[in-house]
Every structure is written in C-alpha cells, then in structure tokens.
Amino acid sequence: MKIDFEEIKRLEKLSALSSSEEKLKSLAEDFNKIAEFVEQVKNADIEQTDIGYQRVLKIDELRADEVVPSMPQSEIVSNAPEKEDGCFVVPKVVE
C-alpha cells in the first residue's frame, strides 16, 4: 500500500475529519485506488503550455467601490447552532 495509515491520518487532520480504526482500513483501500487513478496526471508528459485560452479580467471590469446595504444581523446568524448578542458562539478559544 502506497499511502499508509499515518498518511491517511495526516490527511484526516488537514480535513478536520476523523475515522474509527476499523473504518480507516477501508478508507485507506479506497484512497489508494483513487490515488493510483490520479497518478497518471503526475506522470503525464506535458510540456509547458502557453496561457492560451485562459480568461483574464481587466482592472476596469472590477467592481466599483460603492456601498450596498448589508444583511440584517438576525439573518446573518439565523442558521447558527449557537448564537448570542448577534454573535456566533463557539467554545472558548485559547490562543
């Protein structure tokens, strides 16, 4: 197996996910198949390509600096699982 449990755990950490030990095994199997599948791209023989058909925006096409009304506070926090005084609330964060 190319991608071992340690690597899977690293990816889970980056993803803010966690699996039980038994689930980890099937996940690792699936993940290895998928990784193998995308491996062809890594090995592809493609020389440097020109920017070609890529779209770019000009500065004048950007949004003008004009104020538009904000959303009411009550709607901003309407879907929050926990809120207080118009704020989203999370467990105490220690820096």
Partner: peptide, 27 residues
Amino acid sequence: QEPNSNCCPVCVGMPGALPVLNKEALK
C-alpha cells in the same frame, strides 16, 4: 459597529456566496 451588522453572505462565507474584487482596493 454592532457585531455582525456590517455583513453580507460574502463576509460570513455563506454557502453560495462569491467574492467580487473591489477595484479601488487593488488600485
């Protein structure tokens, strides 16, 4: 200002919201 009173779907990263760059900021 009052908390979250100066916000829109973009500020709070609501699903479906998209950033649109302010020309003046870039300038």
